[in-house]
Each structure stands twice: as structure tokens, then as C-alpha cells.
Computed example of a mutant assay.
Amino acid sequence: MTSITRVPSVVAHDEIDLFAMMQSIWKQKKLIAARALLLRFIAGAYAFLATPVYEMSTLLRTAALNDLDALNRTEVYSLPPGKALVRVGAALDSYDTRLSYFRANPKLFEAFGKAGQSPEQVFDEFNRDSLKLVQPDPKKADLLSAYIGLQMRYPKGVEGDEILILLVLCWLRRPVLLWFF
């Protein structure tokens, strides 16, 4: 004779049994605590062993029109403030400008080098990873928001503020006419 057994039907519930879930978590409490302690240890080790990285930035804004009057009155060269800012930004973004500054100030860049690196490799790494030119959105090109920014990231032990300020001052102290010809 055949027997017919009834298979219990599985009813899908849209509810979550929070009590069962908490019981499941409570059963695994030692494993969860061990993982949390391990992650705390790893995070603490990283915080104490990682070299801190600092960031310095500076902004150059357009010169007032009366600051360029002496140049414009000579009628040798007419220079609007926005154009002056763009040219200074182009000079600061120039590979040659940065390389000549790097070569003129080797003591400032000693901490960037690693054992066995040539000065050219140190400069390439510095130029690629540490120094960045920031410009405003070209879609919002009004005189009130015109600026050129320089950002520099540097590790602990490097005089990053001195490097960045001297780079800007080095190029701003040059005679104005030399920048633009």
C-alpha cells in the first residue's frame, strides 16, 4: 500500500525574525570580538608606523589693474591682469621651471630621495606625485574667481612650506618683462 505523506509547505514571509538573528550573532560573539580586536591592532599599528603626509597650498590671484599701470604706461607691452595670471600659471606649471628650481635648491629636496635614486628620478617623482597646479573651472571664467593654485604633498621631515613659498617667490620676483617674452 502506498502511503501519502504530506510535505509541509514553505511559506515565504516578508518579515525578518530579529530574535533569531540576534541569537545567531550571540552564538558567534567570540569570533566577532576576535576579529574586532585584530582590526583594532592593525589600525593602531598603521597609525603609529605610517609616515605622516602633509599638504600645503597657496593661491595667486589677479593683480589689480593699477599695479600693472607702470608697465602699461611704457607702451612697450600692454598686459591685462588676467593675462598676467595665466602666464605666471604657465610658468609655474612648466617642467623646465620646476627642474631649474629643483637644481638650484638641492638641499630642500634631499628628504624626497631614496637610496640609490638619481637626482633626475627624485625630481620626476616629486614633480609627478607631490606638486600640482590647480586652476578654476574654465566655465566660470570671471575676474573674481580667477586664480592659480599650487598644492604640494610632502612627508614628515620635509620643509614643504618653504619649498612651495620659495618656488612661487622665485618666479614672482623676476622682472615682469622676462616672464612674457
Rank of each mutant, 00 (worst) to 15 (best):
M1Q: 04
M1P: 12
M1H: 09
S3V: 02
S3G: 13
I4Q: 10
T5P: 03
T5E: 14
T5N: 11
V7F: 08
P8A: 15
V10T: 11
V10K: 10
V11F: 05
H13L: 11
E15F: 01
E15W: 02
D17V: 04
M22C: 11
I25C: 13
W26V: 07
Q28V: 05
L31H: 12
L31N: 08
A33Q: 14
A34W: 11
R35Q: 13
A36S: 13
L38Y: 14
L39D: 15
L39H: 12
R40C: 15
I42Y: 12
I42H: 01
I42K: 10
A43S: 14
A43C: 05
A45Y: 06
A45T: 02
Y46A: 15
Y46S: 10
A47F: 15
A50I: 03
T51E: 05
M56P: 00
M56L: 06
S57K: 12
T58E: 09
T58H: 09
L59K: 14
R61D: 01
T62M: 04
T62W: 04
A64G: 02
A64F: 00
N66G: 03
D67K: 11
L68V: 00
L68N: 04
A70P: 09
T74V: 07
T74C: 13
T74Y: 07
V76K: 11
Y77N: 14
Y77C: 14
S78R: 10
L79N: 01
P80A: 15
P81T: 07
A84V: 01
A84N: 05
R87P: 03
R87E: 13
V88D: 07
V88K: 08
V88A: 15
A90I: 05
D93S: 13
D93N: 13
D93C: 05
D93E: 07
S94C: 04
T97Q: 03
T97H: 05
R98A: 13
L99W: 08
S100M: 10
Y101P: 03
F102C: 00
R103F: 01
A104T: 08
N105W: 07
K107I: 11
K107G: 09
F112W: 02
G113F: 02
G116T: 08
Q117T: 12
P119Q: 13
Q121K: 07
Q121N: 07
F123Q: 14
E125H: 15
E125A: 15
F126A: 11
N127I: 06
R128P: 04
S130F: 02
S130W: 02
S130D: 02
L131C: 11
L133C: 03
V134M: 05
Q135D: 05
P138K: 11
P138N: 06
K139T: 11
A141P: 01
A141E: 10
L144T: 13
L144I: 13
S145E: 10
S145P: 03
Y147I: 01
I148F: 07
L150F: 06
Q151V: 09
Q151M: 13
Q151C: 01
M152A: 02
Y154V: 04
K156R: 04
G157Y: 10
G157M: 05
V158T: 02
G160S: 00
D161H: 11
D161V: 12
I165P: 03
I165N: 08
L167M: 14
L167N: 06
L167P: 06
L167A: 06
C170Q: 09
C170V: 03
R173H: 15
P175L: 10
V176S: 04
V176D: 03
L178K: 14
F180T: 09
F181V: 04
F181H: 00
